[in-house]
């Protein structure tokens, strides 16, 4: 037992040593380049997923049509073994797109089929949280607020844009945050297929070379992924605070409403928007 504990102690001190060695960070194959790739991939995927999920979610939430289909699709997608789908798509695409030039921008040699497979599958992974949160956020808007907006002469699109969207924004952004976290985490796993950069490269390569030891680069990358997730989530939290109206988030001075929260705050917000 003590031998095992000593062993793991060695592993973790190896991580500290690895992360404090400057040469591991710089250079064409350094940690910084891999972190950059990781962030670029995640940004592309989440943006693409948002472009699909936000409009659909807004329309489904506003009209109330297609809710059953959305819930069904979202639940089915949750059961998809992401890794398997990436492998399947990659194996299927690789012989069809044999692009094999050197490193271009953030893509590695022969990385085009991998990149396409990973992006498609991770978009499938990122769409459900954004989609369900968007329509649920719109649907959760107090019907009285919606009626009030209509009573003030707003058209359907105006109600959606100026009342429902601002009220649903906290939930929508939390959906985006969930999607981003999942994408950052799963990109690590996606490096299992060859040709993808990002921090997962260290883990997949490390597992192949020295699976029994859990070598320092592997563990270091794992810890950096977790840190990256925390930092990005913190930044998005900041964005949420800046973007969401204080009337909706409940930070609007409480003397205006006896009970700041979802039920009364949107009323205040609707009035403010119209004024």
């Amino acid at each position: 037992m003590s031998a095992i504990l000593a062993d793991s102690g060695v592993t973790f001190s190896g991580v500290g040593k690895y992360l404090t060695t400057g040469s591991n960070w710089w250079g064409i194959d350094g940690l910084l380049v891999h972190i950059r790739d990781h962030v670029i991939y995640a940004a592309i995927i989440v943006l693409a997923a948002a472009l699909i999920a936000l409009p659909v979610g807004l329309i489904v939430g506003h009209t109330g049509r297609g809710v059953v289909a959305v819930v069904g699709v979202a639940n089915a997608l949750r059961a998809v073994p992401t890794l398997g789908l990436i492998v399947l798509l990659y194996v299927w695409l690789a012989p069809k797109i044999p692009v094999n030039h050197g490193n271009v921008l953030f893509l590695h040699r022969g990385g085009v089929p991998t990149f396409i497979a990973v992006v498609i599958v991770l978009i499938l992974l990122a769409v459900p949280p954004i989609l369900t949160n968007t329509y649920a956020g719109i649907q959760a808007v107090d019907p009285a607020v919606r009626d009030a907006a209509r009573g003030m002469g707003m058209r359907g699109s105006q109600v959606l844009r100026r009342v429902e969207l601002p009220c649903a924004l906290p939930l929508i952004i939390s959906g985006l945050r969930n999607a981003t976290l999942q994408v950052i985490a799963t990109l690590t796993v996606a490096a299992y297929v060859p040709g993808l950069g990002g921090l997962g490269r260290y883990i997949a390569d490390g597992a192949e070379q020295a699976p029994a030891q859990g070598d320092p680069p592997m563990l270091s990358a794992a810890i950096l992924v977790a840190l990256l997730a925390v930092v990005v989530d913190g930044l998005l939290n900041l964005v949420q605070r800046l973007v969401v109206s204080p009337g909706v988030s409940g930070r609007y001075s409480s003397k205006h409403t006896s009970q700041p929260g979802v039920t009364t705050a949107p009323l205040v917000e609707a009035q403010l928007t119209v004024a």
Partner: peptide, 23 residues
Amino acid sequence: IIYTIPSLVLFLVLPGILGTGIL
């Protein structure tokens, strides 16, 4: 916070904490 830890990270870090083999 726990739910935000990527699964692969947990699979890799747990052996060091539990004293189990990585496989």
